[in-house]
Simulated scan of single mutants.
Amino acid sequence: MTAGNDYDPQPELFSALLTPHRSLSRTGFIVLMVFLSVVSFAAGLAFLLMGAWPVFGFFGLDILVIWWAFRINFRRAAATEEIRITPSELRVRRVSHRGHVVEWVLNPLWVQLDQKAHAEFGIEKLYLVSRGRRVSIASFLGPDEKASFAKALLAALQTAKRGPTLNPVT
């Protein structure tokens, strides 16, 4: 049997790796911090020359707090959520920003996609429901992204429910 004729018993019907969106890159962060530092230093220097020397230290403290907040934000961007569907299983693997892994394996024949929608804002939450278990997915996507993701996930679930299609002539 040649490599072109190999039969894959579990073809992957759907695979998505979701990561939190961060609009500020590392370079943008450096530019922002340099700009804020220069503005803070100039404003602090003006207060220092007026005789309000303690204010100068508070401007430095503000820069430190902003840097700390961005550091936490960038660290949390390391979180991921992987969703894979084959004809026999739906696997959700969530890795937190600290590296903790949680994994759910569900039968795609029993899974339903549930969504909580708001009339004005769109889809707020997506859930996979199977045998009394409810797993929240795609929590860090926006409403439009959740709608697109839900449409693709539903199509893959319907394909899994139809069963494998064997077509030896390709």
Rank of each mutant, 00 (worst) to 15 (best):
M1R: 03
T2Q: 11
T2P: 13
A3S: 08
G4Y: 02
N5I: 02
N5E: 15
D8L: 06
D8N: 12
P9G: 03
Q10V: 04
L13F: 13
L13H: 00
F14W: 10
A16L: 05
P20M: 02
H21T: 10
H21Y: 09
R26S: 11
T27S: 14
F29G: 03
F35D: 03
F35T: 09
L36Y: 01
V39R: 04
V39G: 06
V39Y: 08
V39Q: 11
A42F: 08
A43Q: 01
G44T: 02
M50Q: 13
W53S: 13
W53G: 08
P54N: 05
V55C: 09
F56R: 03
G57K: 03
L61W: 08
L61V: 15
I63C: 14
I63G: 09
A69M: 15
F70A: 08
R71E: 09
R71C: 03
R75H: 10
R76N: 14
A78F: 04
A78V: 02
A78M: 07
E82C: 04
R84W: 00
P87Y: 15
R91E: 12
R91Q: 07
R93K: 15
S96V: 08
G99P: 03
G99E: 08
G99F: 03
V102E: 15
W104T: 08
V105R: 13
V105E: 05
V105I: 15
P108A: 12
L109S: 12
L113Q: 11
Q115A: 15
A117L: 02
A117H: 01
E120S: 14
E120I: 14
F121W: 02
F121A: 04
G122W: 02
E124W: 03
L126A: 03
V129Q: 09
G132S: 03
R134E: 06
R134Q: 08
I137Q: 04
S139A: 14
G142I: 00
D144C: 01
E145K: 05
E145W: 01
A147R: 15
K151F: 02
K151Y: 10
A156E: 02
R162Y: 00
P164K: 12
P164M: 12
L166N: 10
L166I: 10
N167H: 13
P168Q: 08
V169H: 13
